Computed example of a mutant assay.
Amino acid sequence: MLLVWFLPKQQHRSHWQSIEVLRLPSGPVDIMAHPPLGAGALRDILVHHDSPEQRSLAVSTISHLPRKQSIPLLQLALKDVSDDIRLLAYAALESIENQINEQIACYQQRYEQQPHPDLAHVIAQHYWELCYLGMAEGILRKHYLAQAEQYLRGSFQHTGHADYSLLLGRVLLEQQRPEEAMAYLKDARQQGGQPEQVVPYLAEAAYQVKDYDQAREYIFSLADKSGNRLSQVKEYWL
């Protein structure tokens, strides 16, 4: 007690520490050298920052992120009050879509010259990516899903594979055809598909056909993983 009394711990009078304002990276080299801000921070800049220059830099940074992260943020930027920012976001989205379509055209040309189930699967994956990433809506989305189904069914004439069955099951689910989807999803599971990849879609198909007992069984068969989104769904069904 005497030591504490005569030698008290030094108290800091300053409760705030100033730091340098982070500069948004604007290119791939900058992003590799300096880790970018998280998707949440970039979204906040798009929604709340008053400076059009900062929002424009945020869009440039978002353009170099993985597609799954960048596309929702770019679609949000399409609602910006600034014409320049909307045009920048639209150009970035159009570039992504053009890249995927160019890959589809390239693989289709190869498939026409030498049909192979693996090529058909790759083409179907690219059509699925356009839908999964939210790049297509309405009639165009239906067309892409139909094309994905067509190429997948063509690949089944030559070989069967768990990945093929799983993708076709997901495509059929998106087309609101759960009964057909369930048959292919069960086939994917029988062919050795990972339960974590297949079972959630089996549960979704069972739910869509209103077989809630079967959906509950599928959900409970999944392994418990704390913090996983599926674990939250599992708790809801308890």
Rank of each mutant, 00 (worst) to 15 (best):
R177L: 14
V233Y: 12
L238I: 12
D213Q: 13
G27P: 02
Q197Y: 00
I19N: 10
L172I: 01
I45C: 06
Q197R: 15
Q175R: 15
E179G: 00
M32Q: 13
S231N: 13
F6A: 10
D30A: 08
A89E: 04
Y90E: 11
M182H: 14
D211T: 05
A181Q: 02
L76S: 05
V233S: 07
G154N: 11
W128Q: 02
G40E: 11
D80H: 01
A39K: 15
Q157L: 15
A33W: 04
Q214F: 07
A183C: 09
C106M: 12
M1S: 14
P36I: 07
Q99F: 01
Q194T: 06
E174K: 01
Y132V: 02
G160E: 11
H126L: 15
P117E: 05
G134W: 09
Y207V: 07
A105Y: 01
Q191L: 04
P8M: 13
L152N: 00
L230G: 05
E20L: 12
Q232V: 14
E20K: 15
Q176G: 00
E20Y: 09
Q69H: 07
L3G: 08
I123D: 02
Q190L: 14
L78Y: 03
A39M: 08
E97Q: 15
I31D: 03
Y111G: 09
S56G: 07
R177S: 11
Q75R: 15
S26A: 10
K68R: 11
E94W: 07
I71V: 06
F156P: 01
S95P: 03
A223H: 14
H158P: 07
V199Y: 06
P195T: 07
K142L: 13
Y207I: 08
L145W: 09
A183L: 13
W128S: 06
A41L: 11
G38A: 02
G227F: 00
S51P: 00
A148F: 09
M32W: 11
T159W: 11
Q194M: 06
W16I: 11
R43Y: 05
L73K: 00
K79V: 05
I104R: 05
A33M: 03
H121C: 08
H15Q: 11
Y132M: 06
G192S: 00
W237G: 05
S231I: 08
S226V: 10
R153S: 10
Y236T: 09
L168E: 08
H158E: 12
F220Q: 13
P8D: 07
S165T: 10
F156D: 00
E137R: 15
V122P: 01
